[in-house]
Design a protein around this nucleic acid. Structure first.
Lengths: 210, 210
DNA sequence: TCATGTGAACATATTCACAGCT
DNA sequence: AGCTGTGAATATGTTCACATGA
C-alpha cells in the first residue's frame, strides 16, 4: 500500500496541530484522497476507528508506523555521492523516523575521506563489510546510469534485498529483491505531456478536430 | 501514460547500441514490462509498428517524443535551492531533452547571487516576471514542507499550471493545475514495508500463524 | 445520531490469445 | 512464418451506499 506513508504524514501534521481525533473525511482531505478509499485502506490493517467518533490520531499513527515497519531501525547505505547523493545524505527524511544512513560509498577514490553530512565517504569495495556489520537491508543508488546495474548486482550479492534507484536505468535483479525507481526526468516528462494537452485544449489555439 | 518515458529511455539505449529495429518483446524487456502491455500502450498512440517485423527504433522514438511533447521547449523554474534544489539544478536529465532551467529562486536573500550550475540564484519575488518573460509552464518546488503551499500558490497565480513537488506536503491547487509529488521518504517507507514482510516470511524466524 | 467498515457496483488496468497483415 | 494490434477474459482498484455498532 503506497498510500500508507501519505496517511502517516497527514497524521503527523494533525498531531502537530494538537488534534487528537479525526474523522475519515478530515484525514482523507489532509492526505488528498477520497474518504471511502481511506477507510478501505485502513480496514486492511485492522479496525482502528470508532464508529460514530472517528480515529484516535496518535493510536492510528502508531498502528500505521508499525504496519510499515518504522518501529524498527533500518540501516541504509548510499552509493554514488555526487550532487544527488550529497542531497540525499543531508535529507532529513532519510535520517529520521526509522532510517539511519550508516555509510556513503563512492567509486571515485579522490572523494574518499571527504565529509558529507558528518560522514566520511568510503570506498565502494567496503560494501560487503558494511552490510554485514550493520545489517543493511536497504541500498540507495545515486550513481550515473552506466554504473547502476553493476552497483545493484554487488548490493544483491552483499545481501541487500531492497533498492531505491535514482539512476535512470532499468535494473534487473533476482526474484525476491525489490527495486523502487525514482526517475526525476520521467516526472518532468509526465508533466510536459499533460501540459501539452492543456495547451492544445485552450480556446483560441488552432487545432485540427475530426 | 506514465510508462511512455520508460519506453523512450529504452529506445534511446537501443539506439546507443546501434539497434535499428526491435520487436515488442525486446523493447518490453529493455523497459522492464510485459510485451502485451507495451503493444497495447503503443497502440494508443497509433500504429507505428510493422507486422511480422517490429518497430523502427528511431521512428518510434520520435513518435513517443512528440506524444509526450518533448519536441518543444519547456522552460522550468526551480524554487528552493538547498541541497536538493542544488542537485536538481545540476541534474542533466533536467537540462536535456526539451527541458531548460531558466531560473533558480530562493527566499533566503543571503543566497542571492550565488552561482549554481552556472546560474545566479535570484529572489523569489522575481517569479512573476520570469514566468512572463520565458513562458514558464513548469515549476519545481524543492523548499521545506512549511513553505511549499505558499510557493505553489504564487506559482499558480504567476500562471504556472504544472508543478513537480519534492517537499513532503500535500499541495492544494485549483482545478486545471497538475501536481506531481516525489516523496523520497515515502519511497524508503514502501521498501521498508516490503522488507519487513520478507523478514517475517523467512524460515527460521518465529511468526504466529492462524 | 453519527461515522466506521464493507459488500456490491462500477471503473480501470493487465494479460491472454489469436485474427490479420507483411 | 512471424509479429503487431486488439477483442475478450481476467484482475485490480475505486466509489457508492448502507448496515452495523458506538
Amino acid at each position: 500500500m503506497a498510500r500508507l506513508p501519505v496517511y502517516l504524514r497527514a497524521l503527523n501534521s494533525l498531531l502537530d496541530a494538537d488534534i487528537a481525533t479525526c474523522s475519515s473525511e478530515e484525514l482523507a482531505t489532509a492526505a488528498g484522497v477520497n474518504s471511502a478509499k481511506l477507510r478501505k485502506d485502513l480496514s486492511h490493517l485492522g479496525s482502528y476507528g470508532t464508529r460514530g467518533v472517528g480515529y484516535d490520531v496518535e493510536y492510528l499513527r502508531y498502528q500505521i508506523s508499525r504496519e510499515i515497519g518504522l518501529t524498527q531501525d533500518w540501516p541504509v547505505v548510499i552509493v554514488g555521492i555526487g550532487n544527488l547523493g550529497h542531497a540525499l545524505a543531508n535529507y532529513s527524511g532519510f535520517s529520521s523516523r526509522g532510517f539511519r544512513t550508516v555509510a556513503l560509498l563512492d567509486a571515485d577514490n579522490r572523494r574518499h575521506g571527504d565529509l558529507v553530512a558528518g560522514m566520511k565517504i568510503r570506498s565502494f569495495g567496503e560494501l560487503n563489510a558494511i552490510v554485514r556489520e550493520h545489517g543493511v537491508a536497504i541500498g540507495v543508488i545515486a550513481t550515473p546510469a552506466a554504473s547502476a546495474q553493476s552497483v545493484a548486482d554487488q548490493m544483491v550479492s552483499a545481501g541487500i534485498r531492497s533498492i531505491l534507484n535514482f539512476a535512470p536505468a532499468v535494473l534487473s535483479v533476482p526474484e525476491g529483491v525489490d527495486v523502487r525507481m525514482v526517475d526525476l526526468s520521467s516526472e518532468l516528462q509526465i508533466l510536459a505531456y499533460h501540459e501539452q494537452r492543456k495547451s492544445a485544449a485552450r480556446p483560441g489555439d488552432a487545432e485540427v478536430v475530426a
